[in-house]
């Protein structure tokens, strides 16, 4: 029998971190404001108190420093979990992540492993000022050597953060900031599935709707409304952005013949674009229509008074569903 507990996503991440730290004393947590304050979203709340300054500490405000030293600590046998405070502040660390962290195993011909986890709250919808609402996942997915995941619910949050910490390779965890307070049951005993698997969330037979992170909730809303309007939508939670679980997607697309991919990020050169290309390449004779992408516009993230119009919602997804059904 498994025991369950209701938690919000932020709390589930916190519990997952706590568990990982209890299980392995080499796990360290650091970043800006993660100690006494518990992070600006309280994801690391209580960890400083429980594990002390040696394992949970505030770093100077220097993202390149945070990731660069995480690399050195990993070389020394630690398993660092670094927090980047907001999506828009990861870029000072770009060199350390893409040119260093991602490539050290390759460069050392496997002599070195880089079990570094970088947590990044991402996405919009919280009425924030500039640089606090971005979806930069594509930059990282484009870089070989990085594993990238994005949990959409508390159970996945609890387990995927632990799986990420156990990974011998660097993992970037994109956390759906605007869903941090969304609650759900967490199974404290059994992991749901491997970190890189996609999950079929809702069965349908006319259109496959693929989403990840904060858009999963929106996709489920769209499927619900779609059902009322007589369209049967199958919803898949991607969970892992690199690598992508194509077998699960292909199986669904071969059943429905149609795919809509929804994400907050600008669609140009996005995760959605790559999935659209791969699905077309491998499922040409199964498709009834071209793959459609619903996403943010190809502009900088707008001021918050305009974010409602910028971010895809259930209606925008259903507009694409209507179009794809019209083929």
């Amino acid at each position: 029998m498994s025991s369950y507990k209701d938690m919000a996503i932020a709390k589930a991440l916190n519990a997952g971190l706590q568990k990982a730290m209890q299980d392995d004393e080499k796990v360290l947590v650091f970043g800006e404001d993660v100690a006494e304050l518990g992070g600006v979203f309280r994801v690391t709340e209580g960890l400083h108190k429980e594990f002390g300054e040696k394992r949970v500490f505030n770093s100077p405000i220097a993202e390149s420093g945070i990731v660069g030293t995480a690399i050195g600590l990993a070389m020394r046998g630690y398993r660092p979990v670094a927090e980047i405070q907001f999506d828009g502040f990861v870029f000072p660390a770009f060199n350390q992540i893409t040119s260093q962290l991602a490539k050290l195993t390759y460069r050392s011909e496997g002599f070195m492993q880089m079990p570094v986890v970088i947590r990044i709250p991402y996405g919009g919808g919280i009425g924030a000022v500039e640089h606090h609402s971005e979806s930069p996942e594509a930059y990282f997915a484009h870089t070989a050597g990085l594993r990238i995941i994005s949990p959409s619910n508390p159970n996945d949050a609890y387990w995927m953060i632990q799986q990420a910490i156990q990974s011998p390779d660097p993992v970037i965890v994109f956390e759906p900031k605007r869903r941090y307070w969304q609650k759900g049951p967490v199974n404290l005993d059994v992991a749901p599935m491997p970190m890189h698997s996609a999950r079929l969330l809702r069965e349908g037979n006319q259109v496959t709707l693929l989403a990840y992170g904060p858009m999963v909730t929106t996709a489920l809303q769209a499927a619900e409304i779609g059902a009322e309007e007589g369209v049967s939508i199958e919803v898949i939670d991607l969970r892992s952005l690199a690598p992508v679980d194509y077998p699960t997607i292909f199986a669904s697309v071969q059943k429905t013949g149609r795919l809509v991919v929804a994400a907050e990020a600008p669609t140009n050169v996005s995760i959605s674009s790559e999935i659209a290309a791969r699905v077309a390449e491998h499922n040409f004779y199964h498709l009834e229509a071209p793959v459609l992408r619903v996403g943010g516009f190809d502009t900088p993230y707008p001021p918050s008074k305009l974010e409602e119009a910028y971010l895809p919602d259930a209606d925008r997804i259903l507009e694409a569903v209507d179009r794809i059904m019209a083929y």
Partner: peptide, 19 residues
């Protein structure tokens, strides 16, 4: 409330086909 087209203004200095 700013007009929606502000989302697209000044991304580039002149017209851009995608925008």
């Amino acid at each position: 409330t700013p007009p929606l087209e502000n989302i697209f203004h000044n991304v580039y200095s002149d017209e851009h086909p995608d925008i």
